[in-house]
Design a protein around this nucleic acid. Sequence first.
DNA 1: CGCGGCTTTGATGTTCATCAAGTAAAGTGG
DNA 2: CCACTTTACTTGATGAACATCAAAGCCGCG
Lengths: 231, 231
Amino acid sequence: MKEEIRQTSCENCVYRSWAFEKLTNEQLKEIDNSRKEYFYGKGEVVYREGDKVEKFLYLQKGLVKLLKTEKNEKEHIISIAKPLDFIGLLSIFSTQQYIYTITTVEDSIICEVDLSLIKKLIKENGDFALDFIEKMSKVFDDVIHTRLSISTKQLRGRIAYILLFFAEHIYGHNEYELPVSRKEIAQLIDMSTENVIRILSEFRKDNIITIEGKNITIHDTERLRRIYELG
Amino acid sequence: MKEEIRQTSCENCVYRSWAFEKLTNEQLKEIDNSRKEYFYGKGEVVYREGDKVEKFLYLQKGLVKLLKTEKNEKEHIISIAKPLDFIGLLSIFSTQQYIYTITTVEDSIICEVDLSLIKKLIKENGDFALDFIEKMSKVFDDVIHTRLSISTKQLRGRIAYILLFFAEHIYGHNEYELPVSRKEIAQLIDMSTENVIRILSEFRKDNIITIEGKNITIHDTERLRRIYELG
DNA sequence: CGCGGCTTTGATGTTCATCAAGTAAAGTGG
DNA sequence: CCACTTTACTTGATGAACATCAAAGCCGCG
């Protein structure tokens, strides 16, 4: 279901005013020429652990997850990325191979640019390079902050976190359709699927949220935030 | 006990052949001029959460820890850095203030360079910029990999990890003096101090290690590695 | 319509933090 | 240098938090 498409040009892309802000028009054109744009249906694998890193990827639309398979076969979700998050960036500059698997969790559009071109532009354009470093730094900070938030909290706090994460970071609404299964939530925040369900039910009984299948409505954001902060 | 010293020049520094490999002699001289070198005794605070970020730091000698204080007052160690690890790097390019506290765990020598100078050199020297990005990427990968290893394992696996970490990553010997207290180990790998002690004792009873106060000797590396890998 | 995956709830057992209490080691002031 | 205080270390006992197991309903899909 992966298929190449070409809807927009780089000039009008949201990334223009973000990652590629510092590029000259010439340089942006180079990107646009090297670039391939792909549509992926929900649940498709974009790259697999061990695949060779040759492309710089960015998510134009949709939602993806980065996951790692443990030695004991368990899958573990590192992070969920939306457009304007770098994806796959965690390793592309330091290893030859992907160390995470990237999978879509919603229909997505992903652009690929030759990594060698990005490297060339970093060398050529100092402002771009510095901007790039600053954005990398921010992304990494976020990931580490998140992992730390999760690992130091107990289950109720983690569920509160993930509910707020989708509401505030991903959708910007208190009412949304969960793009992931209960099991995926469990993999993301280090707990068992059963307990994800149990605690969601608790929150429902306490009138903090409403659940109808995948549809979540948060009624009491403040209370949820307190639960998150107190762990 | 912090005091300014000046032992070496950048030209002979180990960093020369690492972070600053791609700089010209001219540029390296700029670094050397801007640079201040400090000695810190064991246990001193280098920077505190909330301090303004103005300097790029690197550890020339010694060992430091990065820690974060939770809302509930608990301290949590993010990572332990040795020379050639970037320190404080996790945030210096994305925030105005340190989001971690940096403390020495052994006597250390730390160099400071104006961050604005590093930024200037990144803009001027593309090879340096790219090299810098690659090294950042690697450091971040390591931190994330470590956090993930720790959070998905149970206590025995975590203790095995930390014992191997010091043996292989920090000291390169199976016999070493622990630079941190049991409590600090607990803060680093998310468990209670009591259980750190209990599991160390178990490993001793099983003849995997010998403990004499702070002195650790690993007898059965392979068994430790199995414990680490199986969780 | 039946099969497999997702969801839900209850019951059970394990892992782990916490509490308590005591010993050893390491600073601190006179 | 010794009494004193504090901090680090250690072991056992208890209970809470959580994973795991089991069983059943639900839903989408071939």
